[in-house]
């Protein structure tokens, strides 16, 4: 069994850092008369965190749903490791190594950690013509993977509902990493979390990056973005306003850019820069 654990997808060779994993050029998505994306371009590189910033309605959700196979783009180029792709289901995206951790849909609270961790990819043990879920193996892996990210769980069969919000996000990320994701899309993983929980998630995101994965980190919190991001793409009204390396832009400039117009900036000045 230990051999089985060693040969898990996690041990697969990661691409060298800096190589583009996802390239998107002029992506357009219409919903009937509504133009949700009006030409978005971005590049996700191995070993880097790309922060996707934008206010509500900027098109962040549509963009990630397109990247994760929920929506089909109306036009534009979508390359994964240099090859054009057209996903028709979330499963296609998963098989191509793009795993999305949705903010509130990551885990099912009533189900055990083990059952959540292996949901949709249950390990199978065959007994004659019958096939069973290998609960012993699943429990062991779940416990080990939790330990790796610093969550010491006594019982992997305890319900996910007993974990904190930050822990749940971390379990969802660990699951994606374990099953061989090359690109992680994190949809506002910190927006509902307190300070300690947020730092736990950010720490883990940074750890995942060092293991050579590409991460798309969606947030509207510039501080969280700046803490872990290597590059920042700002979306506004369905378009990319620009992509900046961390060395090219300050946190304040990023905040201003994201605000889009002067209104928030002046409000922010009124509030002594507290927004």
């Amino acid at each position: 069994m230990s051999a089985a654990i060693a040969s898990t997808p996690d041990a697969a060779v990661r691409p060298e850092p800096g190589r583009p994993l996802i390239e998107v050029r002029d992506l357009v998505k219409h919903f009937g008369p509504v133009v949700a994306l009006a030409g978005v371009s971005l590049t996700v590189r191995a070993g880097e965190v790309l922060c996707l910033l934008g206010d509500n309605g900027a098109g962040k959700s549509t963009l990630i749903k397109t990247l994760s196979g929920v929506h089909k783009p109306t036009s534009g180029d979508f390359l994964v490791e240099g090859r054009p792709v057209a996903f028709s289901t979330p499963r296609d995206a998963l098989d191509a190594g793009i795993a999305t951790v949705f903010q509130d849909l990551a885990m099912i609270p009533l189900m055990s950690i083990t059952r959540n961790f292996f949901m949709g990819r249950e390990p199978i043990r065959r007994v004659g013509p019958l096939s069973f879920m290998d609960m012993g193996f699943a429990d062991r892996v779940a416990r080990e993977e939790m330990k790796r990210i610093g969550i010491d769980i006594r019982d992997p069969r305890q319900a996910v509902g007993t974990l904190s919000g930050g822990e749940r996000q971390c379990v969802a990320i660990a699951r994606a990493v374990y099953f061989g994701a090359k690109v992680l899309i994190l949809d506002e993983p910190t927006s509902a979390l307190g300070v300690a929980q947020t730092s736990m998630v950010l720490k883990y995101v940074s750890q995942v990056r060092h293991r050579g994965l590409g991460v798309i980190f969606i947030t509207h919190n510039v501080r969280h973005a700046y803490a872990v991001g290597n590059a920042f793409t700002v979306l506004n009204r369905g378009k990319t306003l620009g992509t900046y390396r961390k060395s090219e832009i300050t946190i304040d400039a990023l905040q201003n850019l994201m605000a889009g117009d002067k209104e928030l900036q002046s409000l922010s000045d009124d509030l002594d820069g507290m927004v």
Binding site: P90, T100, F102, L105, I108, M111, G120
Partner: peptide, 20 residues
């Protein structure tokens, strides 16, 4: 596996669909 799918379908159909 089917049992896990039954729990998942009832627990959160969308989350279950998202993982296939």
């Amino acid at each position: 596996r089917l049992g896990n799918w039954i729990f998942a379908s009832g627990g959160d159909a969308n989350a279950a669909r998202n993982v296939g």
